[in-house]
Design a binder for these strands. Sequence first.
DNA 1: GAGCACTGC
Length: 748
Amino acid sequence: MFNSIKSAKRKVITFDDDEENISSQGHDTQSTAAPAEQKSSKATKTKAQKESESSEPTSTAESQEEPTPSTTTLTKKQKRQQQHQYDRPKKIANKEPTTEAIIAKAKDLKKHREALPIYTARDIIIKEVKENACVVIVGETGSGKTTQIPQYLLEAGLAAHGTISVTQPRRVAAINLAKRVAEEVGTPIGQKVGYSIRFDDTSSKDSLIKYMTDGIMLRELLSDRLLLRYSVIILDEAHERTLRTDILFGMVKSIQKKRADMIQAGRRDIQPLKIVIMSATLDAEKFSEYFYNAKIMYISGRMFPVKILNTVEPQSDYVDSALVTAFQIHQDEAPGDILIFLTGQEEIESLEKLIEEYAVDLPPTVGKLIPCPIFAAQDSATQQKIFEPAPHGTRKVILATNIAETSITIPNIRYVVDTGCHKSRGYNAKIGIESLLVEPISKSSARQRMGRAGREAPGLCFRLYTEDSFDQLDEDSIPEIKRCNLESAILSLKATGIEDPTKFDFMDRPSKSGLLKSLEHLYALEALDDTGALTEIGKKMAAFPVDPPYAKVLLQSEKMECTKEAIEIISLLSVDTIFSAPSSKREEANEARQKFMSLDGDHLTLLNTLRAYESVKGDRDWCRENFINSRHMRHVMDVRKQLIEFCERAGMDPRKSCGHDLEIVLKCFLAGFFQNTALLQPDSTYKSILGGLTVSIHPSSTLFGKKREAIMYNELVFTTKHYIRGVSALESAWLSQAAPKYFGNRHA
DNA sequence: GAGCACTGC
């Protein structure tokens, strides 16, 4: 059914054409919420449906991340943020709606709420949550579960003795959901409905429903171990199995039991805790089993059918296959944009070039095919471009990483091309080394990608692999907790009173060696003592919202009197990179960076850049001219502000500066990173001091290609080599001073 | 000579 592109002399890729192979986001299952609704939704789209869909997070658009807070509900915190001295994007002047207008809107929305398919299940949901301690709810995309269920529980009186909280893995989602639900409830954001994310908390004591990131919930656990302010905790997007939701599973489960025990013992001031797990994938048995065989409820969604087309033959080069497929779609299929999932920036940029080259040969009767790259490292202005509609008669082809799988929803996608691969972070627990490698996706990822074609109309999903290959994919991705460094999580567990994290009630247990590696490193950082108990240092470290080695650097900076510089460098290292490097202007970008370069390496180069940024008050034009990512830089300033507050709270002076004696800052960093050091070898390579691993300085480092006696690095990730990033030069004599226990004999 | 995506009272 697919014709070749004559002028482009390309091979043709044949896809199977099995009519049975139609899926409307998956599966026929028992559904408590009117399964017939799903079929009718394919034909026409009611206004209510559109409304329900718009309640889903729609983009990472910066404007959404930085909402215009209503002037009547400004918290002290928000007021402080508004006075931020750095150049932020202009906020759109938003005339505050009147109370009458808000109520009228809510009344209007009520009709739409009642037209949602989930509404038919309202009473059952309320009944189940009232009668059971734990409930698992499976809701397909567009079911409205995340906006409606908290409101049902509120209307049923479940917020009488505490707030209903809904955790989210992503900030934008928490913001958008809270705004939407506030509208439906009919009060300004921050009153009955609020959200809480890092740097931005609109919730108040009176909030009845609170959307928050899972990270915030984990932080709250440190000060409120029984989470007494909450009556219901809804853990949303549970299927994503992020490290933080996995930790929360175990935490809320034990809190629920503790509270029940206290009530049993006659404590009248304690209320029971309800747990609701919400997931988008169907195999919810695992969640159910973990939560005492909790009842599972299924809610159907509002997806259009997507036809799956697998290739007949395995493809040896998926970038090339994606190129051919894109042109096949463009020439053969009805209007609608194409979304291609690739693994990284390099692939995206090479496919972009290829598409531009081949588009030249398109016959004049065929409209243009416009490639639009999107990945996380772009600056926000570039990211916004994919939301601009294609000119009439042309077609956009979006080249995306996994960012388009969950984080960004792009409108008008009718065709998905799935390469079947992604880049995934791994962790070898035995040697304690992280990796970032291309790997096959899971079946649930493939379904998620497919679903991106059926949000607005029926779509097609072209899988660049055979049906057999699909069958061999894992059902789900390996949960993050089994493939990442656990230091931070372990320190949090210790700080919330869990003495033996190896005995924690994990839904999926991390490997013993991974746990031990983390415990060992925490011991080396003096966060744990010989018996494995949390030390005073460890307690202080756990309070800081940074990884343990950075927390150690902050504590050390007090002794070395360079807290100001430590805070600043740690803030700068909290983003991937502050430098923006569009590959098309690489030369210019490198030249601009020379101005800030320190011969000592990346830490002091970052500090120089921050000074320059401050001297122009974060001017956005200056950022553009100097290839500084202003979005990342503003994040750096937010982190700095927060770390200053945390240091003050810990009784430290965040203004203590070492002035021009910057060598002391590097020595200070060694307190957290003495294990991340390497020595120059006679053959000009670097060998890590502990472990003797040959490491290579990443090309993005200022020390790339330089030969220094000894170096320290923040990060080691295996890709094509063991690359180290965040590198600075040392004198080897500093090592024995920084960690005599480890280097005392060697350099005495 | 090159890094997927998230997140922190």
